[in-house]
């Protein structure tokens, strides 16, 4: 079991590194799929079947396919990768490095990983998750429907083809000359 954990852990770390270092976006996405699958493996090791399944279906299935489509439609490849200015790079490295140092320091100091509760092998079963979802966390569960509804409305609103109106106040407040220029 422990050997399996180390194999999966190594796989997730290595594939995550490939995601950020690969030159070709397609390789990145494939590595990300591997990363997600290995994380799903971790969930199964913890007996969290429900989470593992959802993770595979949602992330590996839906989101990764979406990523592939975006890459395909935008026709991304190494040649079209925008060059960042030196200042941006320095700022990004400094910012990311500082966050990394903080995280590393936090883990080096005083992190004594001790279980607050005993591990309950039943915690990740579909039955348990469903029970908690419909009793203790009923409100978050129900209210997330508002979130999804607004996302759906938004997608329809943004994707719908619109006929430009000739009226100057067709957007409620008037367009700047530059925007009018752009519209033509």
């Amino acid at each position: 079991m422990l050997a399996l954990f180390y194999i999966l852990a190594a796989l997730s770390v290595v594939s995550a590194l490939i995601v950020v270092s690969a030159r070709n976006p397609i390789n990145s996405v494939i590595a990300l799929v591997v990363c997600f699958l290995s994380i799903a493996g971790h969930y199964i090791l913890l007996n969290a079947q429900f989470l593992a399944m959802v993770h595979v279906i949602v992330y590996t299935g839906a989101i990764m396919v979406l990523f592939l489509f975006v890459i395909m439609l935008l026709n991304l490849n190494t040649a079209t990768e925008p060059m960042k200015s030196l200042g941006m790079r320095v700022a990004a490295v400094t910012g990311g490095g500082l966050l990394f140092i903080t995280l590393a320091a936090a883990i080096r100091h005083g992190v004594t990983i001790s279980a607050t509760n005993d591990f309950d092998p039943g915690v990740g079963l579909v039955k348990t998750v469903g029970h908690v979802l419909f009793t203790e966390f009923l409100l978050p569960f129900e209210v997330s429907s508002v979130l999804f509804l607004s996302a759906i409305v938004g997608v329809v609103m943004l994707a719908k083809k619109e006929t430009p109106s000739p009226h100057p106040l067709s957007d409620g407040e008037g367009l700047t000359p530059a925007e009018l220029e752009r519209r033509r």
């Binding site: 607004s150 409305v153 329809v156 609103m157 719908k160 619109e162 109106s165 106040l169 067709s170 409620g172």
Partner: peptide, 15 residues
């Protein structure tokens, strides 16, 4: 504000 706007008015209020 939305008097002259043609489309998506209800959506914006709802959002």
């Amino acid at each position: 504000y939305y008097a002259k706007v043609k489309e998506n008015v209800a959506e914006q209020y709802a959002l």
